[in-house]
């Protein structure tokens, strides 16, 4: 994760000589990861890519993806920050159990998460009758898209935020209190600035995960253009009709991901130096 990588970079380990065969193996591994990504950009000439993206299908999917993932990100930060802070500061067996459970969504296959959400929020789910009585339908609506994204994305933010909060020496908060800060004030003036880069990394991971969410969305929200068809679903759908369109949308999604990653590293560097 980005957090741990940063921590190790700060210690700046001395470079040591590396065996040639290790370089070869590393290069092979690197090629495996980079080639598919590069391929997405070289399949079509650049003007072709841009032209393809101007189709209403691609545009609708992109707009929906951006809207839902931003709502999901804001919601994840809102519900995740207090939980992460509590996990970082509280002690005891109960906390460790909660912590383990919070990592479950990271390992659970997204399709399974979708089924689970359906079992809770679906018409015949546990919360179904209550929601129906209120006139609220969630499955197969944009709200379901957001819920699916929160479910699979938020744990990444929470995990990263918990680590960031743990990294803030509690003595600093204590001292801030004796210097006249209320708990809220101390959080804003000490904890938050010191945990900021960890929170930012977590938010980016969460957002990237939400943007790419596929399995839980297709199960829980369906694949309806302009309503629940996000960019990943649109790519999947386009593969049936037009490989070029699928490639173009893939390139777009990949560009957004790159920009996100790059922006975080830039912000991060600005803060550490």
């Amino acid at each position: 994760m980005i957090v741990t990588e940063r921590a190790s970079r700060r210690r700046a380990p001395r470079a040591v000589p590396v065996a040639p065969w290790l370089v070869v193996l590393a290069t092979l591994a690197l090629a495996y990861f980079l080639l598919p990504l590069v391929a997405v950009f070289f399949r079509l000439p650049f003007p072709g890519l841009v032209e393809k993206l101007q189709s209403p299908q691609a545009f609708g999917a992109l707009a929906l993806s951006l809207k839902t993932s931003i709502v999901a990100l804001v919601a994840s930060i809102a519900i995740g920050t207090p939980l992460a802070y509590w996990l970082a500061r509280a002690r005891g067996r109960f906390v460790r159990v909660v912590e383990t459970f919070m990592q479950m969504p990271i390992v659970v296959p997204p399709a399974v998460a979708g089924v689970g959400l359906l079992l809770v929020f679906g018409r015949s789910g546990y919360a179904g009758p209550a929601l129906h009585a209120l006139g609220i339908t969630i499955p197969f609506t944009p709200v379901a898209v957001v819920l699916a994204q929160i479910f699979t994305g938020a744990p990444f933010f929470i995990f990263s935020a918990k680590q960031a909060f743990e990294g803030v020496d509690h003595d600093l908060v204590s001292v801030a209190r004796t210097l006249g800060s209320t708990p809220t004030n101390a959080f804003a003036r000490v904890t938050l600035p010191l945990a900021f880069s960890g929170l930012l990394s977590g938010a980016v991971l969460c957002w990237a995960r939400s943007l790419g969410e596929f399995g839980a969305t297709i199960v829980f929200a369906g694949n309806f253009p302009n309503s629940t068809q996000t960019l990943p679903l649109a790519i999947y759908t386009a593969l049936d009709s037009s490989l070029e369109l699928a490639v173009a949308m893939s390139a777009l999604l990949l560009t957004v991901a790159f920009v996100l990653l790059f922006a975080v590293r830039l912000v991060d560097r600005g803060r550490t130096t």
């Binding site: 003595d171 204590s174 209190r177 004796t178 209320t182 000490v190 010191l194």
Partner: peptide, 19 residues
């Protein structure tokens, strides 16, 4: 609460705010 006691507290590692 600590913020209303007006007791200056200096810790062993000094706990200066690094940011």
């Amino acid at each position: 609460p600590p913020e209303r006691r007006r007791i200056g507290y200096v810790l062993q590692q000094y706990a200066l705010f690094p940011h």
